[in-house]
Design a protein around this nucleic acid. Structure first.
Length: 314
RNA sequence: AACCAUGAAUUCG
């Protein structure tokens, strides 16, 4: 409906509060949202800290005998999964099945993500089998979700094995899949492997984007390999890929943690010069680094300086 | 008929 379109537009412009006003307006006027509008509303509320309001809308539509669609359930599972409410997500899934609605690829992927976030790897494995017996084929989303989930569960061998199984299947691996694997390896401290896959993806013609670069840079930063990180920043530039605040933050953090606060500050200046303004993550790393080096005075100085910064939303 | 759902990167706690 018209409401549905307007609400999407508002959200994409960051006007979340206006969506609530619109919802109120609809309620006052007695306008009944249609299915798509309910879905959109539930999605917006659920992803913006108003999950319980979203769930009550779902109850409301059930009470009004508006039949939820597979999408409604996908949205609910996604919103619940993001905040770790897996049990409720799974209950929603069961309700969906009781209504004899058939989950599609997106619904399955969404459930995998919810299960993976909660570390329910075995459950996810069972659902993978169920998906396959239902004749639903996986896609690249499926595998990046599963690989990410295995990484979170510290099952690195399984993550690598799964990746290698799908790497050469057309359309089943992409830049996101590589990035998920690189991140998982990096977080586990397996920087050699992370670097190996990073090189491999380039050889195979997958262009790393700013997220991929940030992931590998973070891995190496955490391993204290500052020289290699510097090399990667150059490689990035050569690839025409611009670093963003998150990319820089990884290196700032590494420098601060290593007690190289002077270098960290220099990097901050470079960031500003390039239009990447240090944010709360940056300052948090700096202050923490100074504090843990015993430079309490300087840490406090930075803190005071940051407090003086006007409209930076820190 | 049309509009609506899924995946990857940074800090401290």
């Amino acid at each position: 409906s018209l409401y549905c379109v307007v609400m999407k537009t508002l959200v994409s412009h960051g006007r979340k509060a206006d969506v609530l006003n619109l919802l109120e307006e609809m309620e006052k006027k007695g306008t009944n949202p249609d299915l798509a509008t309910y879905n959109t509303l539930i999605d917006i509320l659920g992803k913006n800290g108003q999950l319980d309001k979203a769930l009550s809308l779902y109850d409301e539509m059930m009470a009004k005998k508006i039949r939820p669609s597979v999408m409604t359930f996908g949205i609910l599972i996604n919103c619940l999964g993001r905040v770790g409410r897996v049990q409720e997500a799974y209950n929603i899934w069961k309700t969906m099945r009781q209504l004899r609605l058939r989950p599609n690829l997106i619904t399955y992927n969404t459930l995998f993500d919810a299960l993976g976030r909660a570390g329910h790897i075995n459950e996810a494995g069972k659902v993978v089998e169920e998906m396959s017996t239902s004749g639903v084929s996986p896609d690249a989303y499926t595998f990046s979700i599963l690989i990410h989930s295995l990484g979170r569960a510290k099952k690195l061998s399984a993550a690598k094995a799964l990746f290698q199984k799908v790497r050469d299947k057309r359309g089943m691996a992409d830049v996101v899949t590589y990035t998920a694997l690189i991140t998982a390896l990096g977080k586990a401290g397996q920087t050699e492997d992370a670097l190996m896959f990073f090189k491999e993806m380039k050889i195979r013609g997958y262009l790393p984007n700013v997220i991929t670069y940030s992931a590998i840079i973070d891995s190496l930063s955490k391993a204290g390999k500052v020289d290699e990180v510097t090399g990667l920043f150059q490689e990035m530039e050569a690839d025409g890929c611009a670093p963003n605040v998150m990319t820089y933050n990884s290196l700032v953090h590494a420098l601060a943690k290593a007690g190289m606060s002077a270098d960290a500050f220099k990097l901050c200046e470079e960031m500003e010069a390039r239009g990447c303004y240090p944010d709360a993550f940056t300052y948090c790393s700096l202050i923490d680094g100074l504090g843990k080096s015993g430079l309490t005075e300087q840490a406090y100085e930075v803190f005071e300086k940051v407090k003086q910064m006007p409209e930076r939303n820190l």
